[in-house]
Design a protein around this nucleic acid. Structure first.
Lengths: 112, 112
DNA sequence: TCCTTCTGCAACGTTTGGTTGCAGATGACG
DNA sequence: CGTCATCTGCAACCAAACGTTGCAGAAGGA
């Protein structure tokens, strides 16, 4: 019984750089490719490509403002992503708990 | 304030195929590259490479058994990975909550 | 012994994350 | 208004990751 996961959404937050970008956008409210790249160890162009990916899965939205393109996190979509993290975590946790219970049961039956 | 995340560990569970492999290993207790590839849409060789990745980050361990190489999930390490999922999820959740509170506060001050 | 099967290794192609270089558009300022 | 700085997109290129096919070696079963 595996959990229903949107692979595209998951892969989007699977990349460390993209995760840090989301952190930055959440912290500052908004940002551009240039401002984000100032706080990241990659070039503006790399950031721009990541923004395309994040936009494609709906995690961010663009607002053209003069010569800038200001990006903002889509809170509903990020909440959905967080829910998927929780789902997978819970599923694995449940399996681990079950394995642990079985192991303890075996241990008990060995001891007596 | 970002969460401390082991990028290698996170990337390991970021791949959809590897995640399904972990699911299969948890469900069956153990498996080989061949048995896993039977339940996956990729070839045995692809699975073997993924197993190398999972082994490198300590999420699985190998037990040579005759001509087979039997893989098993390392429960402690998977628990660590689950904890990271929970950490990142909680951090984002907290930010989203804060943004929501601020938005509601602004809304209230507009209304009056 | 012979055949099946499980494995590893090598070569290759495609996608992805990253770089540099350059040209266009827009805002700021003399 | 003209110039200059800055923000952007596009193209070429490189390396690593994910996937494939093909082949050879080792171990178990008839």
């Amino acid at each position: 019984m595996s959990v229903a996961v949107d692979d595209d959404l998951w892969s989007a937050i699977g990349d460390p750089t993209r995760r840090r970008m989301l952190d930055l956008l959440l912290a500052d409210g908004a940002g551009t490719a240039t401002t984000l790249s100032d706080s990241l160890p990659v070039t503006r162009q790399a950031v721009a490509k990541h923004l395309v990916v994040l936009d494609r899965v709906g995690l961010v939205h663009v607002t053209p403002a003069g010569r800038e393109r200001r990006y903002r996190v889509d809170e509903a979509q990020l909440a959905r992503a967080v829910a998927q993290l929780a789902d997978v975590g819970a599923a694995w946790d449940a399996r681990l708990q079950r394995i642990k219970r079985i192991a303890e049961a075996i241990e008990r039956s060995q001891k007596r």
